[in-house]
């Protein structure tokens, strides 16, 4: 309870501010409507109207909550109006991209740690790849793949991988390099092979770094997938849901999709946290 109290206080403050902002931002439209109907609104009526509009500038928290609830549980899971269905489309591409990105990141990190040439040649390119705005590269990836007849999951997964390999790469390079001189000397005094040093020393040493990177990478994967769903009028996925919401001024729909994405990201990060805890505990690293 003592731990929940500060969190709840902040949450409450956010909700209060949000309601205030909703009233303030939606007031203009309510007043315009009233003026057109030649009526004036009491403060009470004004507030009530700002919080119940169909297409508010800023939907009130309860409207978003209801939109989210309806999207998640009010529809058949196979319906195109279901956030579960859209979420699944996004999730599958996210996981595919996350897997590709993680694999690429680890592979490159292993190469960088073991080869001086790769150390000097790969890292600048990896950094450069991340300095390109993903919004610029995403439509091109989609278009290039589409022209080759590939649509759907794969191009989105590539964009997700583009974003997610980098944190894994950086974390793993750091992690694989944590063993100090003394531990490497010990290995040498036992005449250990490079593979033995890798599997028995470098890899286990790097795991705490790997998990920290994976948490960043999975969130980045989700962002990459959603960005990949925005261009070219995709019809499925949380990104598409955001886009169609903005086409038709369905602000409640946008916010619901946003929250769905946020919840999905939180769940993924938590899932990795659980795996991390189990692994480190099994290794005797958690105390």
């Amino acid at each position: 309870m003592t731990r929940a109290l500060p969190v709840l206080t902040v949450l409450l403050a956010i909700i209060v501010v949000w309601y205030g902002a909703a009233v303030w931002m939606n007031a203009q439209w309510a007043q315009d409507q009233a003026a057109r109907a030649d009526t004036t609104l009491t403060t009470d009526e004004l507030i009530r109207q700002t919080l119940t509009q169909e297409r508010p500038v800023l939907p009130a928290p309860h409207q978003v909550a209801m939109g989210l609830w309806d999207g998640l549980f009010g529809q058949k899971f196979t319906s195109k109006r279901s956030l579960v269905w859209h979420g699944w489309i996004t999730l599958s591409a996210t996981m595919a991209g996350f897997a590709i990105g993680t694999l690429a990141g680890i592979t490159l990190a292993v190469g960088i740690v073991h080869s001086r040439t790769m150390d000097q040649s790969v890292m600048p390119w990896a950094v450069a790849s991340q300095s390109i705005p993903i919004l610029a590269i995403a439509p091109m990836v989609i278009v290039v793949f589409a022209s080759a007849g590939v649509t759907g999951l794969l191009p989105k997964a590539i964009i997700a991988a583009w974003l997610s390999f980098f944190p894994v790469l950086v974390g793993m390079v750091k992690g694989l390099r944590t063993p100090d001189r003394m531990q490497l000397d010990l290995m040498q005094s036992w005449n250990a092979s490079a593979a033995q040093v890798f599997w028995r020393l470098r890899l286990p040493s790097s795991l705490p770094y790997l998990f920290a990177s994976l948490k960043v990478a999975v969130a980045a994967s989700l962002v990459g997938t959603i960005v990949g769903e925005l261009p070219a009028g995709a019809t499925a996925g949380l990104g598409a849901r955001l886009l169609s919401g903005s086409y038709y001024g369905q602000t409640v729909q946008i916010w619901s999709a946003l929250f769905a994405a946020a919840i999905l990201a939180a769940l993924l990060v938590m899932l990795i946290g659980v795996v991390e805890k189990l692994t480190l505990h099994r290794m005797g690293l958690a105390r």
């Binding site: 003394m182 531990q183 000397d185 005094s189 286990p204 290794m283």
Partner: peptide, 15 residues
Amino acid sequence: RAYGYVFQAPGLYPW
């Protein structure tokens, strides 16, 4: 494998 080497720090693997 003629040597056993002992350093100032134990250098035991925590895992």
